[in-house]
Structure formats: C-alpha cells, structure tokens
C-alpha cells in the first residue's frame, strides 16, 4: 500500500490548509461585520465605501486577486509572506461575501423591533448591539457555515502562490510518484474530513446560539 507513505506529507499540508482557512475565517468575520454594519448603519460615504469593497472583491477572480497581491503588489513596494498573502486574500473574500450575509440578516430583523427600541429611547448604537444584532446573528449562522466550508475549498488556490498546503503537497507527491488516483483520492478525503469538522462546529455554534427558549426552532421553520 504505497499511499500510506503519502500521509505524513499530506498531513503537514492539511495543517497549513487548516491554519490558513481558520485565520481567514476569523479575520474575514470581523471584516464582514464591519462592512455589513457600515452598509446598514453608516452614512452615505461610509456605506458607499463598504459597498465598493464588497463588490470589488465579489466581482473579481479570487485566483487573480491572489496573483495580484503576491506578484503585483510587491512591485509598488508592498509585499507579504506567501502565507500572510493567502490569509489576507481569503479573509478579504470572506469579508466581502460575509458582509452581504450580515447586511441581509440585519435587514431581516423586523422594523417593529427597531420601533420598539426607539419607543424605549434606545440610541442607535444600543439598538444595534443589544436589539438587532443578537437577533440577526442567529439568522447569519447557517450562511456563515456555508461560507466557511467554501473558504476551506477555495483555500486550495493558495497552492498556486507556492504555499505548501494540502493541494500543493498532493501535486508534489503526484509529480514524484505519478499515482494520480491514490494521491488525489486521499486529498479529496482530506478536504472532506476537514469540511465535516467545520460543519459540525458550525452546527454546535448554532445549537448553542439557539439554546434556551428565546428562539424556538418552530418559529423559524
């Protein structure tokens, strides 16, 4: 069974993939909230800026973004480590798509909740932090789960800027052994296992967020 010998290298690659994905999701989630809240609550200038960011990164190829940050940006004197570049570009991707999720979820909170907050004389910030966001986050979780899994899969593109992630390792082993079937089957399994873990974690977060009686499932079905 020659494929057992691939495992250590693939595992090392999987660790890099996991690290890049998790870091991108964490940073991207922050970007998503900032941009999404800016879209809803910001003045004209701030919300336009957030809109430009979102559309720019949703409307261009992630692979070209990677190349641009890795090969073009250094030409104007700004360069990052490959891994940092990979995390940055993926995080910007998560932030752009995530901001749409945040914006949509905030908009889905009924206007009556905002009116109730106003009638109690809550300020705009308190209304956002204590009334609308807590209700919106529940709605965001499934979409963020999908985005997280998509980000894991898209992270394979970073292999093209010489980061030794799972895909990069798979390519290297295949080039050495020419065992395409074995190597790529194992690689698929690796991504699948990692996405299963992500899915499970998102389910647990969702269950935790819906704990208690505040958001009975029936009300959302």
């Amino acid at each position: 069974m020659p494929w057992v010998s691939y495992l250590p290298a693939l595992a090392q690659g999987a660790l890099v993939t996991a690290w890049i994905t998790l870091a991108a999701i964490a940073i991207g989630a922050v970007l998503a909230f900032v941009a999404g809240i800016a879209r809803v609550e910001g003045g004209r200038a701030v919300s336009t800026l957030a809109l430009c960011y979102t559309e720019l990164f949703r409307g261009t190829s992630l692979l070209v973004q990677l190349f641009w940050f890795y090969y073009a940006l250094p030409l104007v004197g700004i360069s990052f480590e490959p891994v940092a570049t990979g995390i940055l570009v993926l995080a910007l991707h998560v932030g752009a798509y995530g901001s749409e999720i945040v914006r949509g979820a905030l908009a889905s909170v009924s206007v009556q909740q905002v009116e109730a907050a106003r009638a109690l004389n809550f300020g705009r910030w308190h209304t956002l932090v204590h009334i609308t966001l807590p209700q919106a986050i529940i709605e965001m979780l499934p979409a963020f789960g999908n985005l997280a899994i998509e980000t894991l899969k898209l992270s394979s593109l970073v292999s093209l800027i010489s980061i030794a992630d799972l895909t990069f390792r798979a390519q290297s082993i295949r080039n050495l052994t020419l065992d395409s079937a074995g190597v790529y089957s194992l690689t698929l399994l690796g991504y699948f296992a990692m996405s299963l873990v992500l899915m499970l974690v998102m389910r647990l977060i969702e269950r935790w967020a819906r704990r208690g009686a505040a958001f009975p499932r029936a009300a959302h079905s």
């Binding site: 009556q112 109730a116 009638a119 109690l120 004389n121 308190h126 204590h130 958001f215």
Partner: peptide
C-alpha cells in the same frame, strides 16, 4: 412610551430583561 398592537417584545431577552434593559441602558 408606546404599547404596540403586536407587542414587539424582544424575543432574545427574558421577560425580566425586556423590562429592565432600557432603564439600564438608557
């Protein structure tokens, strides 16, 4: 103050917090 036709309680807060939240925050 206002009482609405459809109550508009905050679903993510207990009854106690629904009543006590604005006095604390505002």
């Amino acid at each position: 103050g206002m009482v609405f036709q459809s109550f508009n309680l905050f679903p993510h807060m207990s009854v106690m917090r629904n009543v006590a939240e604005a006095p604390v925050r505002v």
